[in-house]
Design a protein around this nucleic acid. Structure first.
Length: 490
RNA sequence: CGGGAUGUGGCGCAGCCCGGUUAGCGCACACGGCUGGGGGCCGUGGGGUCGCAGGUUCAAAUCCUGUCAUCCCGACCA
């Protein structure tokens, strides 16, 4: 691993300050591990939302919204799910404050307002949604239900980490109900493929996709499919998951439907989600020492034009010069910002947009007006060149595609270069120490998985969908259906 | 939740070990001038009571106790 660019890198503030800051709201605050997303960071999140939304809609899904609070009795209905999340739930026990008689001007919880039943702030919405689906589903004619919700959830983690594990985070969670197992499994696969496609082609991040082992799967799921990406420091990051829930939630919430023959059966379910963690993946995949690097499809603005001028009349001449180009860029469906602020110097602006990762920068000054030229710069490779003004549009169009492609290529190359195959356990340990993915045979048991985790801190990141190359487990020598991907992970 | 570290103007830090003038520096900010093809320069100025609570002391940013938060390592996790 040549670079160690991570969320914990020394360049921390350079990476993130344009996007988010950790919430620092009050003295003695227990709003711990929450982030404030700044406008530029939120603009990136909105891009992610828009693209995913359109893909969900193309595949027949609709958005809906369900309550933030989950009554404890609902939450505990699906036992495995409840058990899995119990340790990290924020719980609402009272609904009123009153003046503190001993401390004028201060408030205390009104003990008379204790709730009969505690409310859990959703760590995920299966429970409340399946309680609702119970009332919506009677017949096979009511199926499938294909819903998605954009929401915030709260998981009171022991240890938080900016972007990757904040106590409150934004995500989308899909929850579908189906008449058959086959259909639910197809949905689970459809979504993981949709995610993989999105993360690769929109965000420019190479991913692996496959199955989670039993110990890594979602609490309450029969099977969990995942996409895993490899960060620059050689650690893996789970970027999205899609769960086949079987009939677990339908049984827990007694959701049955009558099929064509009038026979009652429990409904089959899936759930799936991606979160603001994707923004962490973005930063850790593409960022460099100069700050963020955004793939054009994700950039709040793809091109920035910086005029170089001494006086306002000079600025006005430059504006006349570049305005036709700005119009043309927009006509081509590319977003552009003309940074004609008077209160910052060009050098400052260059730097600011570099830190923000704007894919393409154009600089225009008096010299260019004379020579009918402009300077164009691509952020990913930090290369600039001077062009004839008349060639600008075609170069911009080329760069928009080229930067998008090159980022994915670089990400794929990084993953390929750092994926190796271990033939023995000793070799495996060495490879894990180096970083990256290690493919190895595994006998399929939890015991072996745990041993590997204890010895090396590596976990099974994913099991390929086609299990087609039998061999012998590197630890026990027992037979193995296929090689699986191991890595140390976030 | 266990181990370690940190908390000082908006941001980043020094000072703390060995208590003692008016708590200092860089960046940022405001004003003025010179500048202007890569985070400009010079000058002037404003802003902090040292996370919070308590204790020791003539005297606390500095010592002690508690507490909250953050970061790192572990366990746990999208």
């Amino acid at each position: 691993m040549s670079k160690k660019l991570t969320t914990r890198s020394e360049n921390y503030s350079k990476w993130y300050n344009e996007l988010v800051v950790m919430a620092d709201l009050a003295e003695n605050s227990s709003v711990r591990g929450c982030m404030v997303i700044k406008p530029y960071g939120y603009a990136i999140w909105e891009k992610i939302q828009q693209e995913l939304d359109s893909k969900f809609k193309e595949t027949g899904h609709y958005n809906a919204y369900f309550p933030l609070f989950v009554p404890k009795s609902l939450f505990e209905a699906e036992e495995k799910n409840a058990e899995g999340f119990a340790k990290e739930c924020a719980v609402v026990t009272h609904y009123r404050l009153k003046n503190d008689e001993e401390n004028p001007g201060k408030l205390v919880v009104d003990q008379d307002s204790k709730l009969e039943e505690e409310l859990i702030v959703r760590p995920t919405s299966e429970a409340i949604i399946w309680r609702t689906y119970k009332n919506w589903i009677q017949s096979y004619r009511d199926l499938p239900i294909l819903l998605n919700q954009w929401a915030n959830v709260v998981r009171w983690e022991m240890r938080t980490r900016l972007f990757l594990r904040t106590a409150e985070f934004l995500w989308q969670e899909g929850h579908t109900a189906h008449a058959t197992k086959k259909e639910a499994l197809e949905e689970t696969k459809l979504i993981i493929d949709l995610y993989a496609n999105f993360v690769e082609n929109f965000m420019g991040i190479a991913v692996l996709s496959g199955l989670k082992s039993d110990s890594e799967k979602f609490a309450g799921a029969e099977e969990t499919y995942c996409i895993e990406s490899l960060m620059q420091d050689g650690k893996a990051l789970q970027a999205g998951t899609s769960h086949f829930l079987g009939q677990n939630f339908a049984k827990a919430f007694d959701v049955k439907f009558a099929d064509k023959d009038g026979k009652l059966d429990h409904v089959w379910a899936t759930s799936w989600g991606v979160s603001t963690r994707l923004m962490g993946a973005l930063i850790m995949s593409h960022g460099d020492d100069n700050g963020l690097v955004l793939p054009p499809k994700l950039a709040p603005y793809q091109v920035v034009i910086i005029p170089i001028f001494k006086s306002e009349s000079e600025l006005s001449d430059i504006s006349d010069y570049v305005n036709p180009l700005i119009d043309e860029i927009r006509k081509n469906g590319i977003t552009v910002k003309y940074d004609n602020r008077l209160n910052h110097k060009p050098g400052f602006k260059f730097n600011e947009h570099e830190v923000k990762g704007v894919p393409i920068r154009i600089a225009v000054g008096p010299r260019d007006l004379k020579e009918k030229s402009l300077e164009i710069f691509r952020r990913d490779k930090m290369q600039k060149k001077v062009l004839k003004f008349s060639d600008a549009m075609s170069e911009i169009s080329f760069l928009i595609d080229d930067i998008q492609n090159e980022l994915l290529n670089a990400s794929k190359k990084h993953m390929d270069d750092n994926t190796s195959t271990a033939k023995s356990y000793d070799e495996f340990k060495e490879m894990i120490e180096t970083g990256g993915f290690v493919l190895a045979h595994w006998d399929g048991t939890v015991e072996t998985e745990n041993k590997i985790k204890q010895d090396t801190k590596a976990t099974i990141r994913c099991i390929p969908f086609d299990k087609k190359n039998p061999g012998k487990c590197i630890v026990t020598g027992k037979s193995s259906e296929c090689q699986v991907f191991f890595a140390k992970s976030y």
